[in-house]
C-alpha cells in the first residue's frame, strides 16, 4: 500500500528510466506507440513541474525522426504514419515550444485529408472510423492553428460527432455504439475545442482592424445535454472512490481523466467525491518503482501515470501545474500558443 501523498520524485525517476528497459519483451512490443509514450511521460513531467527531467533536444530530434515525408508521424522510427501519433507529435512539439521545426501546413493537410464525406475522420488510409480520430484531428488542427477551412469542414465534423450521441447523453465510437467515457472525452473535448469564428462578409470589410477581426466565436457545447451526461458521468464513481468507464464495470485510474475532464468541461466536477478520488489515485501509485497503475496493487505504466497525475491536477492537488481538460496539456502551453481559455 502506498503513502497518501504524491511521490513526485519517484515518478520522475520512473519516467526517466522508461527508455532503459530494453531487455523486456513489453518494451519492444510497445514500440509501435512509443511516440504516445513520450507524450504521456513528457506531459506527466511538465505537470509535476520537472520540465527538464528529459533532454528536450533529444525528445525533439526523436519526434522529428518519426516524421514521414507527408507531414504525418508514425508511432516510432520505421513505423507507418497514423493520426494517433501525429497528435502526440504535435502535442510534444507544442509543449517544448518547437512547432517551428515542422511545416504546420503540411501536417494540417495530412490531418484534413483523413476527413470523410460524412465529416468523420479515419485514423489512416485504411479508413477505420472512430470518434477518437475526430478528437485527434480537431485537437491537432487547433494546436497547429489550422482549425479552419480549407483544412477541415468543422460543421460536418460536428454533425458526425453529434450522430454518435446516445440516450444517456454519452457518446460512442461510431453512430449506434455504446457510450464509453473514453469516447465521451473525445466527443465533448472536440466540441469544446471547435470554435466557430464568424468572419465579416467581404463587402462589409473596412480598413478598420476591429471590423476585420473575428466577430464572435463559440464552441459547440450547445449540443451536449449537460445535466443528463454529467449525472451519468458522476455515476461512474464507485464506493472505493475510483471511476469506471461504463455502468457496472471496474474502476480504473485512466477514467480519472476521461470522466473528470468531461465533468470539468461541463462545470460539474463537484458532483463527485473529489477527496475519495484523490485517495484512489494516490493508492494506485507504485511505491517501489514509481508510476501509477490502473488500480491499487497492479503494475504501473506511463499511460496511467499521466492520467492519474492529470486527474490530480484537475482535482486541485497541491504542487501540480494546472492542466487543460480539453487538451490534456499544461494550461500555460496553450496560453503561449494563444489558444483561448475554457470560457
Amino acid at each position: 500500500m502506498s503513502d497518501n501523498r504524491l511521490l513526485t520524485d519517484l515518478h520522475v525517476s520512473y519516467i526517466q528510466g522508461l527508455d532503459k528497459k530494453k531487455e523486456s519483451f513489453e518494451y519492444w512490443a510497445g514500440e509501435h506507440l512509443r511516440l504516445n509514450g513520450v507524450y504521456w511521460g513528457l506531459t506527466s513531467l511538465h505537470l509535476l513541474k520537472h520540465e527538464s527531467a528529459l533532454d528536450s533536444n533529444e525528445v525533439i530530434e526523436y519526434v522529428l525522426a518519426c516524421r514521414h515525408s507527408n507531414g504525418a508521424f508514425g508511432g516510432h522510427t520505421g513505423h507507418d504514419a497514423h493520426l494517433l501519433y501525429t497528435l502526440s507529435a504535435v502535442q510534444i512539439l507544442c509543449t517544448l515550444d518547437a512547432l517551428d521545426r515542422i511545416d504546420r501546413d503540411q501536417t494540417a493537410k495530412y490531418v484534413a485529408s483523413l476527413q470523410q464525406p460524412d465529416g468523420s475522420f479515419a485514423g489512416d488510409e485504411y479508413s477505420e472510423i472512430d470518434t477518437r480520430f475526430s478528437y485527434c484531428a480537431l485537437s491537432c488542427l487547433s494546436l497547429l492553428g489550422k482549425l479552419q477551412a480549407p483544412f477541415v469542414d468543422i460543421s460536418k465534423a460536428v454533425t458526425f460527432i453529434h450522430s454518435c450521441k446516445n440516450f444517456d447523453g454519452g457518446y460512442g465510437s461510431v453512430p449506434g455504439a455504446e457510450s464509453h467515457s473514453g469516447q465521451i472525452f473525445c466527443c465533448v473535448g472536440a466540441l469544446a475545442i471547435v470554435v466557430f469564428i464568424f468572419i465579416v462578409p467581404k463587402h462589409e470589410k473596412t480598413t478598420n482592424d476591429t471590423a476585420r477581426a473575428p466577430q464572435l466565436s463559440q464552441n459547440r457545447l450547445d449540443l451536449v445535454e449537460t445535466d443528463r451526461l454529467a449525472w451519468w458521468l458522476a455515476e461512474r464513481q464507485l464506493k472505493n472512490g475510483g471511476l469506471n468507464g461504463r455502468p457496472e464495470k471496474l474502476e480504473d485510474v485512466c477514467y480519472s481523466w476521461w470522466v473528470l475532464s468531461c465533468l470539468s468541461i461541463l462545470d460539474r466536477i463537484h458532483w463527485i467525491n473529489r477527496e475519495k478520488l484523490v485517495q484512489f489515485i494516490l493508492n494506485a501509485q507504485d511505491t517501489d518503482t514509481g508510476g501509477i497503475a490502473d488500480r491499487p496493487g497492479d503494475v504501473s505504466d506511463v499511460f496511467h501515470t499521466l492520467f492519474g497525475i492529470a486527474g490530480l491536477s484537475l482535482l486541485g492537488y497541491p504542487g501540480l501545474e494546472p492542466v487543460d481538460p480539453r487538451y490534456c496539456m499544461p494550461v500555460k502551453v496553450l496560453q503561449r500558443l494563444g489558444i483561448p481559455d475554457q470560457p
Partner: peptide, 12 residues
C-alpha cells in the same frame, strides 16, 4: 453593429 470579441463564449 459588429463588435469584435477575442474570447470564445459559451453557446447559451
Amino acid at each position: 453593429e459588429r463588435t469584435a470579441t477575442n474570447s470564445p463564449i459559451m453557446p447559451s
